[in-house]
């Protein structure tokens, strides 16, 4: 049981996908101006990431590995992720057209989000030796970590709307500085979980 807790803490905090591994920056910078959009993006990515992790594990271990086709892993993972993203896109468009519009190009871009491909690739790395459940859990943890920093970041960015930021730093520049300082803060988690 404690192993699952460690995986979760490791994925959410210590090795946070965005702030420590610096993956998935595209939506992190792009869809964090508004809290609501950030929550939506976080949820969408979380869904894709978790499902993608599980599906990739199954494909890798039950389809690719038995037929010695592991060299196809990147290709097949992309296909699966693309399909899940398509599915998510249709669902979001139906459920919340405004969110769909706000997420804009970033929603289909989840497909090429390095975090979403990165996590399945990490899972099938040999040294981790995760079971299916742990893979799913690891994927979920990373998704949670992504959503968490996304939401926190959006909170700060919303507050910065009112700040007297010098002209040239307004917008993306100060967001980058903020992301950097958040990353600095997350270094504090270093060593909490030995992986």
């Amino acid at each position: 049981m404690s192993e699952y807790l460690m995986i979760l803490i490791g994925a959410v905090l210590v090795n946070n996908i965005v702030l420590v591994k610096i993956l998935g920056l595209c939506p992190f910078m792009g869809v964090s101006k508004k809290l609501e959009a950030a929550i939506g993006m976080g949820a969408a990515t979380a869904f894709v990431l978790t499902l993608g992790s599980g599906a990739s594990y199954l494909i890798y271990h039950y389809l690719l590995a038995p037929y010695e086709l592991t060299y196809l892993k990147t290709l097949s993972f992309i296909v699966v992720i693309a399909a899940i993203v398509q599915f998510t896109e249709m669902y979001v468009k139906k459920a919340s057209p405004a969110l769909y519009q706000v997420l804009g190009i970033y929603l289909p871009l989840i497909t090429t989000n390095c975090a979403v491909l990165g996590v399945p690739l990490l899972i099938v790395q040999n040294e981790l030796q995760y079971t299916f459940l742990k893979s799913l859990w690891f994927g979920f943890g990373n998704a949670l970590g992504f959503t968490l920093v996304m939401v926190l970041f959006a909170g700060i960015r919303e507050r910065l709307e009112g700040a007297d930021v010098p002209g040239i730093f307004k917008g993306s520049a100060i967001a980058m500085v903020t992301a950097g300082l958040m990353s600095l803060a997350f270094m504090g988690f270093a060593g909490l979980v030995k992986l």
Partner: peptide
């Protein structure tokens, strides 16, 4: 680090 991490959470 604890202060900075909690600073991140302040707006929320």
């Amino acid at each position: 680090f604890a202060t900075l991490l909690m600073n991140i959470c302040v707006p929320l």
